[in-house]
């Protein structure tokens, strides 16, 4: 992972942020949160009981993607008809 040049954070439609690349995640005190996998999903709806991770709580209340309401944050070319929006 340390050889990868960048971190890519992708907001998936009506779902969490997925993080890929060379990154570390720390808590409010700056302590490392253990990573056990290469790709992680960060809570975007605010309701996960296991923050910072997504635990699919967004499905319980029909979370809708704020990007769909007009916010434009894409700086990467999207090719899909219903693409994730790259931040």
């Amino acid at each position: 992972m340390s050889n990868e040049p960048e971190v890519v954070i992708t907001a998936y439609p009506d779902g969490p942020y997925l993080v890929r690349g060379a990154y570390k995640i720390v808590d409010a005190n700056g302590n490392d949160i253990e990573l056990t996998r290469r790709t992680v999903a960060l809570c975007r709806c605010g309701r996960s009981s296991q923050k910072p991770w997504c635990d699919s709580s967004h499905k319980s209340f029909n979370f809708r993607d704020p990007a769909k309401t007009g916010r434009s944050t894409s700086r990467k070319k999207n090719t899909s008809d219903d693409p994730p929006s790259h931040l």
């Binding site: 439609p13 779902g15 996998r37 992680v40 999903a41 997504c54 635990d55 699919s56 219903d82 994730p84």
Partner: peptide, 14 residues
């Protein structure tokens, strides 16, 4: 699986 499949869900669909 709660954590892993919250990731896989998005990857598998999109």
């Amino acid at each position: 699986h709660v954590i892993a499949d919250s990731i896989h869900d998005m990857v598998a669909l999109h």
